Each structure stands twice: as C-alpha cells, then as structure tokens.
Simulated scan of single mutants.
Amino acid sequence: MALHPEARAVLEDSAAALMRFDAPAAEVRARFAEAWRSSGRGEVVDSVRDRAIPGPAGAIPVRIYRPHGDGPFPAMVWFHGGGWVVGSVDENDATCRALCNAVGMVVVSVAYRLAPEHRYPAAVEDAYAALTWVAAHAGEIGVDGRLAVGGESAGGNLAAVVSLMSRDHDGPRISLQLLAAPVMAPPSDRKSYVDYGEGHFLSREGMEWFFRQYPRDEGDLDDPYLAPLAAGHLRGLPPALVMTAECDPLRDEGEEYAHRLLDAGVPVTLLRYEGQIHGFFALLVDRLSVSAQAHARAAAALRAAFAQEVPWPHGTGG
C-alpha cells in the first residue's frame, strides 16, 4: 500500500527527519529534544506530577498522570522510545494524557537511564524498578493494583522485557502489554528492513547506530532482556496488543513476536496500520491523525484487560 499522505508529508519535511548520526550521542539527544519539543496541546487530565522514585543506581524521574474522578484507578507504566539513547517523557506527553483520560487510569511515564552513558542493562533495571515501585506503592498514588505496561519503539522493547522479567522473577501481575512498533531484535534482513530501511523516517542506519550505543558487547544481543525474540519460550506472559506500521523497518520483528506469543498460548491482538511509518503511536501524534485511532484501539484493549482483573482491596499495593 502507498504511504498515507500525512506520513508522506512527514517524510517530505526535512526538518522532521528523525535525526542525523554524525555526532556524539549527547549532541544527537539534544537535537532530538529540540525537534520534538512538546506542543503543549495535550488533553487536560486531573493532575500531572513529576517526582523521583528509588532506582538501582539512584533516583528515577517519573511523570504521573491522574485521571478525573475519585479512584482508585488501574495504572499503566509507560516507557518512551528513542533507541534507548534519545527521548524523554516530554515527547510522549500527549499520548500519556490521551490514554489516561480514555481509559480512566493512572499513567506513570518513566525517564529511564540512557545509553551510551548507561549501557544495557541500565534501562531495563530502571524499567523493572519502576514497575515494582508502582505495584508496591499503589495506594500512595491512587492505584487499585491492576497494572499494564506499554511503550513505543525502544519503549515497546522495555514493556516486553519487563513482562518477561515479571514472569521470570515472580513480579507484579501485568494485565496487558501494549507494544507499539517495538524493537524486538537487532537490525536484520527481514523484509521490512529491506523495503523500508531507507527513506521511511526510521532507518537501518539509525537502528545500527542505536545498537552500537546500547549493548555492552555482542553477547548482549542474545539476551532476551535486550532482544525479546531471543527468548527460549514465551509461555506465561501477559496478554498483548501489538501495533505495527506497514512502512517501518521494525514491522516484521514486532509481528514475529506477536505470532510467537500466539504460538505460546498468549492472547494477542495484532494490528498493522497500513501506509504508516514508525512513531505513529506517540512520537508523531501531532502529525498523524492515525495516532488518535490507535489510541482508541489501545484504550479499548486496556479497558477490556482491566475488566478481567479484580482490584486489590482499598487500592493498596503489596
């Protein structure tokens, strides 16, 4: 299918090129932050609070969105994208607000440590620490104990990884993993990389650069907590909503992961957005009208998943 006209307009806007990789990571990060400064046009929620929570290597900044109403509410722990190298909670602010309102849930958006200053497993450790903190402090932040995880791109990777970790380490129960255009493996020769690795917003060059910044060495690429497709089995994982874009080099690995989950008996909904590009769910929310459609589908899946769970008494965590 041809590119959607809005996606084509993004590609034709030279100022909106995802980034150049001709500088140190700190400079690339600064360029990214400037290019995707929050528009300030997000929905109004009841409250937004920035705070720090304890982490394995110091405080982890988080942004907590609370919906209107008395609560307690279910919650989603959200992880931003950016190849584990760039990005912040700011670029995903509009999406977190939209999902907070649409579902009626608390959203905890996590500013995990970034590479290469903090290579793998720093981001994973922070992501899992945030999940366990929300579970343990549910009553404090108005959460009833029902938890989901979600993210886009590298954030989708982290959402999948903390789901694996929670299964493996008897961690918090997760009602749904929301994986939007997730990174599931190193750059490859999958068809979507061949067809869309250049000139479609996210590039092979970019992904190869990210994979030079994040792992400590090549051995990390076989670790399922970095590359979930390397997992020996996927049984016992939370239900998943996997959303991919047709014209995205990451499309095939996200869809392969969805099918592997299905083969393992995990309930999965897989949605491909035809004619769309990477970043359609959260990063390009101001540029692509499909973002609102994807948010609505995600909100419906989250509401349905939470409806299957029993809230903890009085919204207290354990």
Rank of each mutant, 00 (worst) to 15 (best):
A2W: 02
H4P: 01
E6F: 01
V10F: 04
A17Y: 11
A26S: 14
S47Y: 10
R49N: 15
D50I: 05
A57G: 00
I64K: 03
Y65S: 01
Y65F: 15
P67H: 12
M76A: 05
H80F: 11
G82M: 07
V86Q: 03
S88I: 05
A94Q: 05
N101D: 12
V103F: 09
V107S: 13
A111V: 14
R113I: 04
L114I: 06
R119V: 07
Y120F: 11
E125H: 07
A127N: 06
Y128C: 04
A129R: 05
H137A: 08
G151I: 08
E152T: 00
L158T: 03
A160I: 00
M165L: 14
H169S: 13
G171H: 11
R173I: 15
R173D: 15
S175Q: 14
S175H: 14
L178H: 11
A185G: 09
P187F: 10
R190K: 13
Y193Q: 04
V194C: 12
A230I: 00
A231E: 09
A245L: 13
E246H: 10
E246Q: 09
P249Y: 00
R251D: 00
G254M: 01
Y257A: 07
G265K: 09
T269F: 03
T269P: 07
I277E: 06
F281K: 02
R287V: 03
R287Y: 10
S289N: 13
V290W: 04
L302M: 15
R303L: 07
A305W: 08
Q308V: 02
P311I: 10
